[in-house]
């Protein structure tokens, strides 16, 4: 019985061993070369990649450079060809991903060439280094491998313009628009207005003063009123009334109120004016002007 139990337990242990011994995918002998155009074979920077630790410094890829990745995929310790062998580039800000398939031979030797032409536009314009990870996986029980191996710094030739395609339409809230109003009409500073208005108003006393020095007076008022009182009063009154109508039209009346009143006042002025002016003519003929 005890024997049986120990047998079972040993079987179980060995079973666990088998499970834990299920191999995992990885890679070996990985080299990363960045070769610029025109430089000879073997020129350019060369880095060794480790499956466990990413490169400390980002790898720079210029506009004319070619990035060459060589590696051997292994299942456990044995070199083997996996079903999936990708180099996945991830933009850290937008988390946009693009995978490049490694060309892996039966022997497990894989190769990948990468130039600017292969990269999507978002990677070319990215300001931060792009993280590159290697993904190796295949069918069966071997556990897959995915780990970041290096950072890629895409340097672009600033003199070569890059055509950025227009962003496709996506339904989202658009930018707010606030109508920009035309500026309100402005008046000059009040003090300037007041000075000039005072100047204009001061012209009236100056005018009256000049008339006075030239001998203008209203001494014949009593004479005129005694000879033609009604027509003089009406004529001068109608002229005042006409100005009053203008004032009311300016402040509150409309045209249909102002016109009849102006007609009435105008005809009074016409009728009384002819009388009043005849009286003035009489005075002139009498040598009193």
């Amino acid at each position: 019985m005890r024997l049986l139990r120990s047998l079972i337990s040993s079987l179980l242990v060995s079973g666990i061993c088998i499970v834990s011994a299920a191999s995992s995918w990885s890679f070996e002998d990985a080299t990363l070369t960045v070769q610029s155009k025109g430089a000879g074979v073997g020129a350019g920077s060369k880095e060794k990649l480790s499956p466990s630790v990413p490169l400390p410094k980002p790898v720079s890829l210029g506009a004319t450079d070619t990035l060459k990745l060589l590696l051997t995929t292994v299942d456990g310790k044995k070199a083997k060809r996996p079903h999936q062998a990708f180099l996945t580039l991830t933009d850290p800000t937008t988390s946009l991903e693009e995978s490049f398939v490694l060309n892996v031979k039966e022997s497990g030797k894989g190769k990948l060439d990468l130039t600017h032409k292969d990269l999507p536009i978002q990677f070319l314009t990215s300001s931060k280094p792009i993280s590159a990870s290697i993904v190796i996986g295949s069918f069966g029980s071997s556990s897959p491998y995915k780990s970041k191996v290096f950072d890629l710094n895409v340097s672009r030739d600033p003199n070569v313009p890059i055509v950025i395609p227009e962003k496709p339409v996506r339904y989202a809230a658009e930018k707010e628009i606030h109508h920009i109003f035309r500026a309100d009409p402005r008046s000059p500073p009040r003090i300037i207005t007041l000075v000039f208005a005072a100047g204009v108003v001061a012209a009236l006393p100056v005018l009256l003063g000049v008339w006075a020095t030239l001998g203008a007076n209203v001494n014949h008022l009593s004479k005129a009123l005694s000879s033609a009182p009604v027509s003089h009063a009406l004529f001068f009154g109608s002229i005042l009334a006409m100005e009053g109508i203008f004032f009311l039209y300016y402040t509150s009346w409309n045209l249909f109120q102002a016109l009849p009143a102006a007609t009435v006042v105008g005809s009074v002025a016409f009728l009384s004016g002819s009388r009043a002016l005849s009286e003035v003519q009489e005075r002139r003929l009498a040598g009193l002007r």
């Binding site: 007076n217 209203v218 100005e243």
Partner: peptide
């Protein structure tokens, strides 16, 4: 000012003595 000047002018024209 023009209105006031006009009224003053009319008064002077009508009633000014030499």
């Amino acid at each position: 000012v023009t209105v006031a000047g006009w009224i003053a002018f009319v008064a002077v024209w009508l009633w000014s003595a030499p």
